[in-house]
Design a protein around this nucleic acid. Structure first.
Lengths: 328, 328
DNA sequence: TGACAGAGATCGCTGATTACA
DNA sequence: TTGTAATCAGCGATCTCTGTC
């Protein structure tokens, strides 16, 4: 099957290339009759416009690139899917990449960028937004620029809920298991954890009870096994649900019952958190609203190039049975 | 920051555009001295080649598009990440899209396609591969064409392991929970399930014990709750791990113990299957090997356009504690 | 006769401008 | 004027063909 171009259609229709272009793009520069004729031929020949040529000419595509650290894990997948759906409805095509920032996004083949959990240092990202002349939306970061906006979770509030919940439990030997240190969300959660731990538990030894779990369930499993065996901690605040599952696993190996012998809380409200027994107390962000806000800000930025804004999403506490609440 | 093109660099270096192109592409058409000078200027000016222009000229990019039904769930994320890594090492950029087949892939902006769990009917896919002149690799389908290849799981063997395992358990009232009916893997697993159920259990009532779970844990949860309460079934063969988790949840709500009162097996060996208690007996495919084979076949197809091949990957049984094995 | 550099055609499409009723 | 169609100049990179020292 050979490639079919505007030129070929023009020959078949007996008109000029420009006329074909106008007809297919619904310009009123062309009569109804010719338009219909040309469209018919284009359909018959299965014409597909060459995006490279069009983009070269107009320097705009309908392509938005989502850059993420990995496709794995519940969180990124859920959020990507949400954004994809909303952009799709707006006539845009979302392309997801994971790993490095592809040089692709620096060319005008890509109209804009969504940054989700991309692990890079701040100067790298600052350089990117400064040197690139297109909208960039950060979902897990705050970078200041005229063509950037941030829509982030209110991690402080989420952690406040969790620390309060554990504070109301019978398990007061509390351990914090963080995500990886490059993660914006993990950093924010850490700050908030310190604040609310110090405030509620009235202690100044926060740093002694913090362990890096790298968002990885096998790591938290090892930590949990050690600490539960030694009876060093009896409550675990995990910065995501996957790591909380690791603690569940450790508890079960040591014949301890979550929600009775120990308390566990997570973050993200992954589907497993509701399906596991006992249900995991966790923090939920409305991913649909988040995705919608990302797309809104994207268009605002695209049209007006407004000043940098940071939008914050309020999370909700999902109370389940993984915490043994004091009943005095 | 203005756009910097070959022409600008040519002006700055005092040479022609052609020379700059040669220099940057390491052609030996240009002297060491000029090459170095030009490269220095290009670096200083942060030159990024315009991919649209290059692609328009050469009609080849280094872009491979992975089309999937959704970013959600363990399976797709894990596999996408694996392929991304391997293509990345080979100097290719993987772009993932979910949902519809984007018209993008029909233009020469995209060099090739990987199909992972895309839900579309066979004629749609056949038309695509026939009309598109680039390699297409199917990971969950078999489409015959000169520019297509399939690398699929041996679902028959996987299901054989599972049915055998349940057959050795004390729970002989067996229920099958399938994925969605458009899924190739689910269809194959269904065929195999019938075959081995009929053979081992020596019964001809297979269809009466099959329920559609749509790969969805909440659906399987509902099914499980109903069947366990009625004591209609005591063993559950789920076509993925997520649905097996739904059964776990149902069991726990009804105070039944998985691996003792009922037996459950899944498919995929997701990380949760190992972390949950009791561990879930499931089927593992080596995703790294799968990804590697996909990339190998991709290059073979790209170079020689060989005849259609179907490669099958042997899965492994991961035996954990979710099945109550007969011990006579 | 090399070794190197430049001119110019080309890919497919768009859109301003021009031309013709 | 007004409606309709054609002309033409690029967008940025590649690469063959020439030309020069």
């Amino acid at each position: 099957m050979r490639k079919i171009s505007l030129k070929k259609i023009a020959e078949l229709a007996g008109v000029s290339v420009a006329t074909v272009s106008y007809a297919l793009n619904d310009s009123n520069q062309v009569s109804e009759v010719t338009r219909a004729k040309i469209k018919k031929i284009a359909a018959e020949e299965h014409y597909v416009p060459n995006l490279s040529a069009r983009n070269l000419r107009t320097s705009s595509s309908n392509l938005v690139c989502a850059i993420t650290n990995t496709y794995q894990g519940n969180f990124n997948g859920d959020v990507l899917q949400e954004i994809q759906n909303i952009f799709g409805r707006a006539g845009y095509q979302l392309l997801a990449v994971s790993g490095q920032i592809p040089s692709l996004v620096r060319t005008n083949m890509i109209d804009g960028i969504i940054m989700l959990n991309y692990r890079g240092n701040q100067t790298e990202l600052q350089n990117l937004v400064d040197s690139i002349n297109k909208p960039v939306i950060f979902m897990t970061n705050e970078i200041k620029s005229d063509n950037a906006a941030s829509i982030v979770i209110d991690n402080d509030l989420g952690i406040k809920y969790l620390v309060e919940t554990i504070h109301q439990s019978i398990h007061q030997k509390v351990c914090f298991i963080t995500g990886d240190s490059n993660s914006y969300n993990s950093q924010r959660r850490l700050n908030a954890a310190k604040k609310y731990y110090t405030k509620l538990f009235k202690k100044n030894d926060f740093e002694k009870h913090v362990y890096s779990g790298n968002y990885d369930p096998t790591l938290s499993f090892e930590l949990g096994k050690k600490f539960i065996r030694l009876n060093r901690y009896n409550s675990f605040i995990c910065f995501n649900d996957d790591m909380a599952l690791g603690i569940y696993h450790a508890a079960s190996q040591l014949n301890k019952i979550v929600g009775k012998d120990i308390s566990v809380v997570g973050f993200d409200n992954s589907f497993e958190s509701g399906v596991i027994s006992p249900g995991l107390t966790t923090i939920d962000v409305d991913k649909k609203a988040w995705g919608q806000e990302v797309v809104n800000q994207y268009f605002k930025l695209k049209e007006s190039g407004s000043k940098h804004t940071v939008t914050t999403l309020k999370p909700k506490l999902i109370l389940r049975e993984s915490v043994n609440i004091k009943t005095d």
